[in-house]
Design a protein around this nucleic acid. Structure first.
Lengths: 237, 237
DNA sequence: CGCTCATTTGAGGAACTTCAAGGTCAGTGG
DNA sequence: CCACTGACCTTGAAGTTCCTCAAATGAGCG
């Protein structure tokens, strides 16, 4: 990450004095580090941010990821790959509280803002050496990595199911990851979801319509859904 | 892993005195640990095995994986999931030199022998505490985990491609992972490959036939292939 | 309101699955 | 040695799912 300021003004804003300035940041960090304030303070020396990115801006290309680890404070980040034929696939979505950066160089993925986003940047080298002295931090990192592996493996499993099942599972998982609120405000575009699920937007739309007609979800204006039968959603096949 | 000896006699054989008794084991460990003999000796105290398993036997269920990490010495291990509808999916194949065991409990996968197999069992707790004192070991484990994550993400990307591309990429990857020998002796059954690629065996067979007719591979009796145009294989779409 | 962009809906075609049959090969017994 | 068997792979034909292309509808915004 040669230059953190390539995100276009005026949205871009890097303010080191506000690292724990927002309630969101503090809350997510507390959750991840289990309230270990000492660890948080030690880490703050390695951090830069929060840095903001507009929707659809490129946060990092593959080679950048080697130097920095990112922590999502607000918004949604996607890691994606566009192959020669022009088809795009989204490998993973990162929500607030997730670490971004265990991305293999061989895959040459691009890390992008799926919505307007706020991220912390953490120097990877410093973090790793810190982790070698601090078992708790090492465990946090190991947990983050294995969680990401588990999500990726679930993603693999999902990809061999029917379109309707993929859509239902995606919505249900998203609802859980976002904290099981009354409404599910889907933050990313249908195109992003379709690319994540290996479907076209048309098939995704038809699948969602089917789930609606089956009474499993209800549509509310403005990309908002109500999961009316969460148990049923998980049984779709 | 309450009992390591549940693999059925007479194939099952646990012989602690032979931990580094075979050339294979020594070679793979040397590769993984970069020739660090001290580390190998330290680890041997935590190990048990090699333990042998017949093809298709269950090595471990999900809950077992929490206690032990496994290291593949010989053969192929698969991690798979059978869903309620009866469809089986294979999440990952593990070849000699791979670690098995970063499997999330939520997925409830079953670890099985895709061929006759030989594995080392390593106590996870001991390994983790050792890694917290030994940066080199910690790096080996982190590398193993991130490698597995990268493979899983590649798997995700593969699942949204055509059947022919999936088959071609699988064969090419397998050839590379097995050391780019003149012949590719495919160790696992077509059913296993199909379940890994999210295809039926019929579609897989037709795809392989297409690759053969296109001159990219050649079939030799007994599950043996020659990758005649490796570059071309990777361009199939 | 009128523009743009995202989503939905419809009709036809391609890809993959399903079902069914045939082929290959190693092991077994006559 | 040869036929028989069973497991595994291959091939064919019909059906389903999903994609492609095209058009309509809806939502957000100046």
């Amino acid at each position: 990450m040669a230059n953190l300021d390539f995100c276009t003004a005026p949205f871009a804003e890097s303010n080191d004095t506000k690292i724990f300035g927002t309630a969101d940041t503090a809350a997510h960090f507390a959750k991840v580090f289990d309230g270990n304030a000492t660890l948080q303070r030690t880490l703050s020396a390695l951090q830069r941010g929060p840095v903001r990115f507009y929707q659809d801006s490129v946060i990092a290309l593959n080679e950048d990821v080697a130097d920095y680890l990112m922590f999502v404070v607000r918004g949604v980040v996607r890691s994606c790959k566009v192959c020669k034929s022009g088809n795009r696939s989204i490998v993973s979505f990162y929500l607030p509280g997730d670490f971004v950066g265990w991305v293999d160089a061989k895959l040459s993925l691009s890390i992008e803002a799926a919505t307007d986003t706020e991220l912390l940047f953490i120097k990877r080298k410093g973090l790793v050496s810190l982790a070698s002295q601090n078992v708790r931090l090492a465990n946090v990192l190991l947990t983050a990595t294995t969680n990401e592996l588990a999500r990726s493996q679930e993603h693999v499993l999902l990809m061999s199911k029917s379109a309707k099942c993929r859509a239902a599972t995606f919505l249900s998982d998203l609802w859980v990851r976002l904290g099981k609120a009354q409404y599910l405000d889907v933050p990313m575009s249908h195109q992003d979801i379709a690319d994540y699920l290996g479907l076209t937007i048309e098939t995704l739309s038809r699948s969602i319509t089917d789930l609606d007609r089956a009474g499993l979800i209800a549509r509310v204006p403005a990309r908002r859904l109500i999961l009316q039968n969460h148990f049923g959603l998980r049984r779709v096949n």
